[in-house]
Design a protein around this nucleic acid. Structure first.
Length: 870
RNA sequence: GGGGACGUGGAGAAAUUGGUAAACUCUGGCGACUUAAAAUCGCCCGGCUUCGGCCUUGCGGGUUCAAGUCCCGCCGUCCCCACCA
């Protein structure tokens, strides 16, 4: 065939193989007890309407794993779906008057078409979309089961209110005092809300992190910190006198340092504490103080700059271990209502914040813990009178009556024991984690399936009346929840008493849907339940989950909780949904600004040879900024569809996998994608136009090969072993490097008639094609066919490395003198130590270093190194 | 303030986990082919050098025959959490 006619036609080839895979239903998954299963899942996308480079990276990573595992004999499940509820759909409705359902479904259709050219090995028959009643009806049933099990409840409480999104947010969705999507400063509101009892599993969610070795350490640490377990005690400080309008006779505080109780200086209440509110009823100055506290935000700067402020109530409380000792009761702006009990006892000597507060307001400071072997009198005097730094370390209890002399750990234990004996406290474990508020005052979500009846209270919707579907005829012309404004939808008769009642108009947080979708994929068509226990039992847990680290304490924690809740309600038998987790890095791109400081798109920028850049349209000088995460606001995005149109999916995939380790950020560059494209074309030419007779497909390698041909065969075997290891460990960048190395070796071999052995070259080329297949599936299928094979690589087993081929006959030993490299020697593989030593000592440069003296010592590490100590 | 990660050529990175630092790639330079360009192919690309070599993994110590890798102390960058009692 003519050389020039046989250029690689990307479009034709990629479409051809996508058709072949689809016709053969190559990636359809069915349960099969005879093979080990492998469930690969990437975090499913929100249907924004356009795929972005982050998607390309995410789904490429997963696809490589899925294809490699399939070739290695696993029964692979690799599904795709849509996280389809959420606010952008509602915003589109408000801005453009399009119904959220229509907007979402059109986006899904558009994105599906954008994903297909990527050539992903997905079982599309399992596609799910969370906004359809076929999906969300099952989570309504789950919610009713959670209600029965006491894992869901309704409570009036202080919540995070996002004034832009007009809805409540969960604690996990408030970042630095701002809404995670809107960026608006979050307000505090007291509302009736539905909660899921994630705190019921706090201890288990924390302890079980140790059982997830295939999760990144970082994510486990983040979850552990979020759950935030601290051990301590609840302590009761009796009010010296009863307070009108307040029932409690004591103030309950939480402390992790009960050993410092004798250093107590005052007790401080949160501005939102019920007692504070009772006191404010008759003290306008306190009302003003509370208002002042509320004005200070919870952002980083606010906290850093906010002064510690207090309000002396004039009341006193009795010390739990010495009732004759009365302590002043303050209200302080730094005491949080939603951690612990909303009240603290302050020990300025051993807590920095309390120290600052005490010095400011002239409150006493007492030393009750001293460093081991310290001069107690001097230490106490200094701490009490002049110190501004608290002593916060562990030590020995002093000035503390019965605790004196005990080390901090023992003192804590003894203090708790005494408190319990006196009925003045209790040892306890406090978690930072709070229950998951799932109510959202929005339309485009799953309706909470309950009815409010004036006579019967909260009535769950009877199961035979599920699903509670969203009404289609809604308007978005008024602010607030369209379900609330709907003329008829919320009016129903009470299922219990038949009297007129109202539907709950809150919908679930969208993280509700994503907390169980991985189980739905195991049995996506099930109409009677979210999934069958048998099918979930076969596929779960997910063996490899891949997504962004931004969900470390959101989706990933909710899913772990949800799976436990489902287990306890009898849905499945696993506790952990994701056995292996991989968090990929972001895609970055340089940023460009014009002389007016406006962002400029990469497509409108030309880089000049002198290192500067200018705008294509008007030649204005462009400032090149640092590489940052691709975002629309900075205009530094690159459209994947355009890249795939130009270079093909294989080149885009290969670039994603090359160079940067997948957990690190990747800089997108035109040069990078060009490099991947060049490599694929080079491989194409090597196979289609090797200039060597490659023989026929399936022919066995001759037993005897010339040494140089043998070296190429060995290199191929080494690549099989290396690439297989790399893929297993998700080291795609080094896998690509090894394949390029082998390709370079083939390129060298075919150029040299002395080295160009057809059988060896064929073997090496076939090895490259097979190993590269999970990464660039289209071109490798085509090349496999052109090499004379009739099977599809999607149905071909992974190659095996022959261990005998991995060992070299000779090795190059490094020769060091005093740890510094001074030469190398080439020796047979199993050369005795003595010979290696002799060969090393014979090197001229070694002799020079020794200056005629005898070596003091020689270390020989067989096959590696000889180190001579002079 | 608490926790974590990282620091290697002009850039992305690699280093068999303590054993020849810089594989693989990008950018750049020189050359071949071409009327020319693109594409392609070849060579060079950490520093110094008296051309024998010598030095080099943020800085300073340490352990070891041997340290990019382990330990201690700094410096720097990034991420997460945070008035958490």
């Amino acid at each position: 065939m003519s050389r020039s006619d046989d250029r690689y036609n990307v479009k034709e080839t990629e479409e051809k193989w996508q058709r072949v895979w689809e016709d053969r239903q190559a990636f359809l998954a069915t349960e099969d007890a005879s093979r080990p299963k492998y469930y690969v899942l990437e975090m499913f996308p929100y249907p924004s309407g356009r795929i972005h480079m982050g998607h390309v990276r995410n789904y490429t990573l997963g696809d490589v794993v899925a294809r490699a595992k399939r070739a290695q004999g696993f029964n692979v499940l690799h599904p795709m779906g849509w996280d389809a509820f959420g606010l952008p759909a509602e915003n589109a409705a408000i801005e453009r008057g399009v119904h959220p359902g229509k907007w979402t479904r059109e986006n899904i259709a558009a994105m599906r078409e954008q994903f297909k050219p990527m050539g992903l090995s997905i079982d599309w028959s399992r596609e799910v979309s969370t906004c359809e009643p076929e999906y969300y009806r099952h989570e309504q049933k789950m919610f009713l089961d959670f209600l029965k099990a006491g894992l869901a409840y309704r409570k009036r409480s202080w919540v995070n209110w996002d004034p832009v999104e007009n809805t409540v947010l969960a604690n996990e969705q408030v970042i630095d005092g701002k809404g995670w999507r809107s960026g608006a400063a979050v307000e505090r509101r007291e509302l009736n809300q539905w909660f899921l009892k994630i705190t019921h599993y706090a201890d288990d969610l924390l302890a079980a992190l140790d059982g997830l070795p295939r999760w990144p350490e970082k994510v486990r640490t983040m979850q552990a910190n979020w759950i935030g377990k601290s051990e301590g005690a609840r302590v009761f400080f009796d009010l010296a006198a009863p307070v009108a309008g307040h029932d409690e006779a004591h103030v309950e505080v939480f402390t992790t340092r009960p050993d410092t109780l004798f250093g107590a200086s005052f007790v401080a209440l949160s501005p939102h504490h019920p007692l504070t509110r009772a006191l404010a009823e008759r003290d306008p100055r306190l009302v003003e103080f509370i208002a002042e506290c509320d004005r200070i935000g919870t952002s980083e700067e606010a906290i850093e700059t906010a002064e510690k402020k207090g309000f002396d109530t004039g009341l006193t409380v009795r010390h739990p271990l010495d009732p004759s000792w009365e302590l002043p009761l303050w209200v302080a702006n730094f005491v949080l209502m939603d951690y612990g009990t909303g009240a603290i006892f302050a020990c300025p000597g051993h807590d920095q914040r309390d120290m600052d507060f005490a010095r400011k307001y002239g409150l006493p400071v007492r030393a009750v813990v001293a460093p081991k072997d310290a001069d107690v009198a001097a230490f106490s005097k200094e701490l009490a009178e002049t110190a501004t730094d608290a002593f916060t370390e562990a030590g020995v209890a002093v000035n503390s009556g019965f605790l004196d002399g005990l080390a901090t750990t023992e003192a804590k234990r003894a203090a708790i024991a005494r408190l319990e004996e006196l009925g003045k406290g209790k040892g306890t474990v406090q978690f930072r984690l709070r229950d998951w508020g799932v109510s959202r005052q929005r339309y485009w979500g799953c309706p909470v399936p309950v009815i409010h009846c004036d006579s019967c209270g909260i009535v769950p919707v009877p199961e035979d009346q599920l699903p509670v579907t969203l009404p289609e005829d809604v308007t978005f012309d008024k602010p607030g929840n369209p379900l609330d404004h709907h003329p008829t939808w919320k009016h129903v008769d009470c299922p219990t008493c038949g009297k007129p009642a109202r539907r709950e108009t809150d919908t679930f947080d969208t993280f509700f849907e994503s907390s169980w979708y991985f189980a739905r994929f195991a049995d996506p068509k099930n109409e009677t339940a979210g999934f069958g226990k048998d099918k979930a039992g076969y596929w779960l847990p997910v063996d490899q989950y891949i997504g962004g680290i931004e969900h470390a304490v959101l989706h990933l924690l909710y899913s772990r909780f949800f799976t436990r809740a489902l287990r306890d309600c009898g849905y499945l038998d696993v506790a952990e949904p994701f056995d292996g987790l991989f968090t990929q890095g972001m895609i970055n791109h340089e940023t460009y600004k014009d002389p007016n400081g406006k962002w400029v798109e990469p497509g409108d920028v030309e880089k000049l040879p002198d290192g500067t850049a200018r705008r294509l349209s008007d030649s204005a000088p462009i400032t090149v900024g640092r590489s940052e995460k691709m975002s629309k606001s900075k205009k530094n995005t690159v459209d994947p569809t355009r890249i795939i149109d130009t270079y093909g999916a294989d080149a885009a995939r290969l670039f994603m996998l090359s160079d940067s380790p997948p957990d690190r950020d990747l800089d997108w560059s035109d040069a990078g994608i060009e490099g991947a494209w060049r490599y694929l074309n080079r491989l194409w030419r090597l196979v289609t136009d090797a200039g060597v007779d490659l023989g026929t497909a399936g022919a066995a390698l001759p037993d005897a090969l010339p040494a140089e041909a043998m070296a190429l065969v060995r290199a191929a075997h080494k690549a099989v072993a290396g690439v297989t290891d790399d893929l297993e460990a998700l080291r795609f960048n080094t896998a690509v490097a090894k394949l390029r190395e082998l390709t370079n070796a083939i390129g060298d071999a075919v150029k040299d008639p002395a080295k160009a052995d057809g059988a060896a070259v064929r073997f090496a080329l076939e090895t490259v094609v097979r190993l590269l297949n999970p990464m660039t599936p289209h071109i490798t299928e085509e090349l496999w066919q052109r090499l004379g094979h009739t099977t599809s690589l999607a149905e071909t087993a992974w190659p095996n490395a022959d261990p005998a081929m991995l060992v070299e006959n000779t090795v190059t030993l490094a020769v060091q003198v005093n740890g510094k490299l001074r030469g190398t020697v080439e020796l047979p593989k199993d050369c005795p130590k003595e010979e290696a030593e002799a060969a090393a000592l014979a090197l001229p440069n070694v002799q020079l270093q020794l200056e005629g003296k005898a070596p003091r010592k020689v270390i020989v590490v067989p096959g590696k190194i000889v180190n001579i100590v002079a």
